[in-house]
Design a protein around this nucleic acid. Structure first.
Lengths: 206, 206
DNA sequence: CCTACCGATCGGTAGG
DNA sequence: CCTACCGATCGGTAGG
């Protein structure tokens, strides 16, 4: 039924549903087949559009990729900042929640945005990168602050900046092997995974 | 000068130089631009061939991708097995060398094969996967044995199988951020990186 | 957002 | 391994 969907400012943003549908569909397809392996026709078809129609919402395919990454970082930042809002958390407990939250950002239903950023970064043209890096820097800063604290408390044995890269790497890499749908037998859930990650990298307390 | 290069059995393997050149060029290009983002023409051009000529050596583009991954795993397995050949190593020392070796496999000059496997796995058709998985299983088994030992010695706090995924993940992810060529100031070298990785995940000894 | 389309490029092939 | 080529597909556009 054409005309029944709510929409507003097509080119800029906020309550435009069709644009959001395109971003979500693109995220899922990019994650599954990669940016270069996904066709504008795939994405259009996934939301019931004709092949030329996505270009009404995005100037080109690369801007759609950037929108996916940007959306992922905004959602991720929101969830991560919420961890900081909880008062009275020890650094260790805050760390545990950061880890658990990041696993959720990678593996919760519909969370395809960040994996796309991780695995299709090379497909993002240079002129679009700065904007994404800026958002990513906020994300890293939150982690760094907590890791610095842990290091001062003697709970983290590695140099804190390298520790951040390695720990986020360990979690991020789960995008390649973790499957939320239990395949055959029982599987690790994200809570256990977060606990094990914390156990792996934290040194025993006094 | 056509005809001056040594070659032997074109379709099977061993001392066929042109085939090897294609695999190396493909590895480098796949790593840089991804499998889908790389063109047969790119690869042919990189070794001074015409666009149709790679198909004399490989039935199709996917078989070239498989050759890249296979070559990477064979080279990696050789280097990793060499670590086991050193006698009289403690589990901790063996672990340190496995870590260092793996960093080398990812970042030494000309080592583009394994990153391609890690980041273009989804482009490998299902029928080619079993062969690669089989090689990868050998690799994992070596790591698992050492990590099991460390766990028994109380030096590893996480469940050993998850520890393997997380530690290899932390190292593998360096493919996205580590640059061997110093960009501006001094940079971490692979020895330091390996030391810090070991420091991060090992619990203090008795 | 659809219709109708275009130029470019791509993987692959025949025949030598 | 080159020459010459083909069918299919792809990102993108004009005009409504």
């Amino acid at each position: 039924m054409p005309g029944t969907r709510q929409r507003t400012n097509p080119r800029n943003g906020a309550p435009d549903n069709r644009r959001g549908e395109l971003v979500r569909a693109a995220a899922q397809l990019f994650r599954e087949k990669g940016f270069e392996g996904t066709t504008i026709r795939d994405i259009a078809g996934a939301v019931g559009m004709q092949s030329g129609s996505p270009f009404y919402h995005f100037a080109n395919k690369h801007e759609l990729l950037m929108a996916v990454m940007e959306e992922g970082l905004r959602l991720g930042l929101d969830r991560t900042r919420a961890v900081l809002d909880e008062t009275g958390l020890s650094a260790v407990e805050r760390f545990r929640r950061l880890v658990r939250t990041h696993y959720g950002i990678l593996h919760d239903t519909g969370s395809d945005f960040i994996p796309v950023m991780l695995y299709d970064w090379r497909s993002l043209p240079a002129q679009y990168r700065r904007r994404i890096i800026e958002l990513k820097d906020h994300y890293d800063a939150i982690w760094q602050a907590t890791l610095d604290e842990l290091h001062e408390e003697g709970r983290l044995a590695a140099e804190p900046r390298l520790a951040r890269l390695m720990i986020l790497g360990a979690i991020n890499f789960s995008a390649t092997w973790y499957r939320s749908k239990p395949r055959s037998a029982q599987r690790v859930d994200l809570d256990t995974l977060a606990d094990e990650t914390v156990a792996l990298v934290l040194q025993p307390g006094a």
